[in-house]
């Protein structure tokens, strides 16, 4: 009986986390389009609901009622699995994100490795979708995207090592608590910038949205998808973007901690701070989408392998030597 109770309690907690995440993904799509529109002096979606807030819900309804078309020559099982994989991977990663000292679904020892692993699995949804469509443009898009994501994962991994050197633990709550006095964005500022740009590339956001470069590849790996399956790719993509923003705010911006530990700031509940930081990073994402033109593919690869990777490796050596010399190494 007790086990059953634990089971239902866990399900309740999972739903309590997942439903807000899904709703905020819908809201974030609206925010993205709004910011994009404001930069271009347009209004953006403003008709459905107050300020157009329900635009995404209306879109989702439309997608649900559209017909799902499965190409006759596709590999049907993998074709259907691909959006499911994308969506699932984007959602399961939220299990380890700590919203406050106590409010975390799974406070595991290797939290940051789990996040890294799940975000590196995200490439499968895209490859599966692109290959199973059995069509040229989706396949080209999938190949591009896989190469891009694998390349930028390497530099994200090295950046995570930088942060871990300063923390001495792989646990996400410990990473946040280590920033109590000083957010890592200050000592590791160059790493923060590189993390941000790599996150753009990892989530296939503009200026690195080559996998779906519409001028060359129609819509990349999503070309053959329609209806709800397309919507799942789309939701998964935005959930991944939110996840990257959450990762950035936990690694560099102090997670749930308030910027100053003084009266008016520390009465605000800690999840609010994390959400504000995620929103800040997301608005930067959206602004960059509006401002920066798309990279060429060779420029993208050059940036990832020849500039980011060596620079972040050198920074690992610098950080380690600095901590060693001033005897600041964490742990025992």
């Amino acid at each position: 009986m007790a086990e059953l109770f634990i089971f239902f309690e866990q399900i309740y907690r999972i739903l309590f986390l997942l439903i807000p995440v899904l709703v905020s993904v819908a809201m974030i799509v609206w925010l993205d389009r709004r910011v994009w529109a404001f930069v271009q002096k347009r209004r953006g979606p403003n008709v459905v609901g107050p300020f157009g807030l329900f635009q995404t819900l209306a879109d989702a309804l439309k997608y649900i009622f559209k017909e799902i078309i499965i190409p006759a020559s596709s590999n049907k099982v993998i074709f259907i699995l691909a959006p499911i994989v994308t969506m699932t991977l984007a959602l399961i990663a939220w299990a380890v994100i700590p919203f406050s000292e106590t409010f975390v679904l799974a406070d595991i020892n290797v939290g940051i490795l789990y996040l890294f692993a799940v975000s590196s699995l995200g490439v499968y949804g895209i490859i599966m979708g692109g290959w199973a469509s059995n069509s040229k443009y989706p396949f080209l898009g999938a190949i591009r995207s896989a190469a891009q994501m694998v390349s930028y994962e390497v530099s994200i991994g090295v950046i995570i090592i930088n942060v871990l050197l300063c923390v001495g633990s792989l646990n996400l709550s410990n990473i946040v608590l280590a920033q109590k006095d000083l957010w890592f964005v200050i000592p590791l500022f160059p790493m923060f910038i590189i993390f941000f740009i790599s996150a753009l590339a990892e989530t296939n956001r503009p200026p690195f949205d080559l996998p779906e470069a519409e001028a060359e590849l129609v819509a990349g790996y999503q070309t053959e998808y329609s209806g709800m399956m397309y919507a799942m790719f789309w939701l998964g993509e935005y959930a991944n973007i939110l996840l990257m923003c959450a990762m950035g705010s936990i690694l560099f911006l102090g997670g749930w901690l308030s910027p100053i530990d003084l009266f008016p700031f520390n009465i605000i509940p800690s999840p609010i701070w994390l959400i504000l930081k995620i929103l800040f990073l997301f608005i930067l994402f959206a602004l960059i989408k509006a401002i920066v033109p798309r990279y060429r593919y060779d420029q993208l690869m050059k940036l990832g392998w020849k500039i980011f990777l060596p620079f972040s490796l050198i920074y690992v050596v610098l950080t380690a030597s600095f901590l060693m010399y001033f005897d600041l190494l964490p742990g025992n």
Binding site: V110, L113, A117, L121, V123, Y124, A146, V150, G157
Partner: peptide, 21 residues
């Protein structure tokens, strides 16, 4: 848990992607 995660990152996240490629 460390081995498990490294297995995911290295084999599934990198090696198998290249295989698939």
């Amino acid at each position: 848990e460390f081995l498990g995660m490294i297995m995911l990152i290295v084999y599934v996240g990198a090696v198998a992607v290249l295989f698939l490629f």
